[in-house]
Amino acid sequence: MFIVKYIKDVFSGIKSLLVGMRRTGYYFTHHKEIITEQYPDNRDTLVMADRFKGEVVLLHDENNEHACTGCTACELACPNATIKIVTKFDITPEGKKKKALDKFVYHLELCTMCNLCIIACPTDAIKMAQTFEHSVYDRAELTKILNKPDSKIREGVE
């Protein structure tokens, strides 16, 4: 009958609305469910995943030595021209000329963190760091030279 269906419609409609209100009402009263992260405040306790890809770094050991031979494998692997390797020629003790790394130029502003350079590196000289706060005031600050001043290639790395 029309009237019965009409009243039924009204009541089932109201019931469905109340079910929704019960759900939001539950969250209104249960503050333990809150999942907000208060980011700058929890910076000390914030742990990034160990594989997180933040930026490319060139690893240096305590003797200020790195493992980069300047082979430009990473430069070739990079799809965005993010890395530019500048090489120089060192004179070895035997008096021979040897190709070595002069500057490892890294354009963070172009990097998409695709990880291809890390895979390409034959000596595992570079890796992804877990930093993520990269904002700076000047774009030029994003162009970095990764090898530290006066750093040398580690002995035995070919």
Partner: peptide, 21 residues
Amino acid sequence: MEETCGARLTMNYYVPGGLRA
């Protein structure tokens, strides 16, 4: 995703022949 692939949105986890890691 972040734990395994190192990123949250643009992971680049698949390489030809399998997985990156």
